[in-house]
Design a protein around this nucleic acid. Structure first.
Lengths: 333, 333
DNA sequence: TTGTATGCGTTATCAT
DNA sequence: ATGATAACGCATACAA
């Protein structure tokens, strides 16, 4: 599995330099690390031969003898999906604040890569955080003693660190907002998702009931998590309920698809049909009109993950972090 | 500068486990690494005590005695700017293909962080690649012997690995396309940039001249690299040249701003004013109409960077890589 | 100012 | 099947 460094013409070591320069390896060490107590001339000579030999200190040997930098591994399903860069940025920023390093790895949305990745990455770092869909039990044999923070998995308890978004609160906020705007016939575009199997849908139904809306299962349709999926589902909903005045979408991507489809069908947004997305992607801002959405502070999510890691590394059992999303009213409602 | 791992209650070592389990450290090593030649019962017992002691192998000690995994450092100015995630993805993907790891670091667009970052990151990895604005000379003292790949710096030669986009070709393609579409009065929105001080502007002027367009310096205005900047510059250009029928923008972000401003002024895009961006961000696809642009294959850019690193690591002097962009005609022209 | 000796935590070799 | 011993490359205390 692990491809190793070409050990072609073995890298020069401190002793190689010492030999070539006619001094002891200790002197070379002094020169390299810029310690005092060394003749400037010797220093110069040593540094010169080091350069010629392409000497570079071994990070392993150094790490062994000095307290090592903390390095955390970060696992995301996809680096390009606009949701994750901000999350990654949050992690890197929080890590950076303590001079920690972050190794970013992607599963490329392939669940089968997750476990092996946790293992191999785990060997190289002090802790791992990320979007991991496997259960604690499945994880255990791959994460022997590894401090682990799992982002966005259901509310079930876990031995690992945990960060999640309060999806239900977000859904309620969206529905309440639409109702306030006078909407009663609200459709929902649902999607399949590992992270959220049913929370959005069930909460939507509950909220609709609480507000006394004439809305039930038949106002929910499910499709792929993509612009195209959103467009298709919107078409289906609109066909089934021509009197629908608003749509709540699983996330911003499908919301954008729905918006485009609505336009295709001659509907004005938001006049004829309001749309609320979920995630709060910054690209929603670029649309015309900009997309109203349930905003998740993805940077903060990353920070919270790092706080969990910090606690874990300090030997504490971190309390699960829950991030409440906020309604972001822009132009589509 | 470096914050180290809390060396609180010193981590358990192989020998600690050995002592606790009443065996030699070698036996523990066998158990941990699942080597054969060990009594299953001993194995079980050792693993158990290891778990109790929260034993985790030191990656440094391991790296020292095994040929190490290749780890490369990646420096970008910003993780969130939609240009970079795709580039990062390309790097990670190419690295992953050889089981290399990638440490991602961001300068947060702060040029002053670059040099220290190169040094500290360089100590932790086998090679570094990224957007680095400093010259070879400035870099030298911070990159002692470090294999380094610099992305997107001018065509001046370098001792380091080099990857860049053929900006001039992109500009020419954009202008040629607009001319083909019948445009002659073409404006340009320019921006300040570390990577490209003048290439876009000068090439634009040259291309305009070659095509015999009635366009000179006065058709170019410069602003901030943001949507707002794009909007403002468009406004200025439009005011100065009401007969302008097309705009070539420094990048997609300002193009989007220009597009919005054009609409504000009652212009239809592309009927009244065509717009061409630069970068080929995927968000351009979401606009209505989708943005025509000079597309840069950012994933490929990342791959090329990794190829340079590979060459460097193999001791070869890599030839600079140049990536030609391609015109992507969507809806705004 | 410079060199010698020791140890960091692991794996590998060779006994037993 | 298990254990003793020697590396790996570096830094550090101590001696010269």
């Amino acid at each position: 599995m692990d491809k190793r460094q070409e050990n072609s013409p073995r890298r020069a070591t401190l002793r190689d330099v010492a030999r070539a320069a006619g001094v002891s390896h200790q002197t070379v060490s002094r020169a390299i690390n810029d310690k005092g107590e060394i003749d400037p001339e010797t220093r110069r000579r040593v540094l010169e031969t080091a350069r010629q030999l392409h000497y570079r200190p071994s990070r392993y040997a150094r790490g062994l003898v000095r307290p090592g930098l903390v390095t955390v591994g970060l696992i995301v399903p996809d680096v390009v999906n606009p949701f994750f860069p901000e999350f990654i940025a949050g992690v890197i920023q929080a890590a950076d604040a303590q001079d920690w390093q972050v190794i970013v790895a992607s599963t490329e949305s392939d669940r089968r890569r997750e476990l092996p990745l946790v293992r191999s990455l785990g060997r190289q770092v002090d802790a791992v955080a990320g979007y991991i869909s496997h259960t604690d039990a499945e994880l255990a044999p791959y994460a022997e003693g590894l401090p682990l923070v799992i982002v966005e998995r259901g509310p079930e308890p876990s031995l690992n660190g945990t960060v999640r978004v309060d999806l239900a609160a977000g859904v309620r906020a969206a529905v309440a907002h639409l109702v306030e705007r006078g909407h009663r016939r609200i459709g929902m575009i649902d999607c399949e998702s590992v992270c959220d199997p049913h929370v959005r849908r069930l909460t939507f139904l509950a909220a609709a009931a609480e507000h006394g809306l004439p809305v039930g299962e038949e106002w929910i349709a499910r499709g792929a998590q993509s612009m195209d999926g959103g467009a298709k589902v919107f078409a289906a909903l609109h066909a089934a309920h021509p009197d629908m005045t608003a749509v709540f979408a699983f996330n911003d991507l499908v919301a954008i698809g729905a918006m485009r489809e609505a336009r295709q069908r001659g509907l004005r947004v938001p006049e004829d049909c309001a749309i609320v997305g979920f995630d709060g992607l910054s690209i929603g801002e670029l649309l015309d009109p900009p997309l109203s959405t349930v905003h998740i502070d993805k940077r903060r999510l990353g920070e919270l993950a790092m706080e969990q890691i910090q606690a874990l590394l300090a030997g504490e059992a971190p309390t699960p972090a829950v991030l409440p999303p906020t309604l972001l009213v822009r132009g589509t409602t």
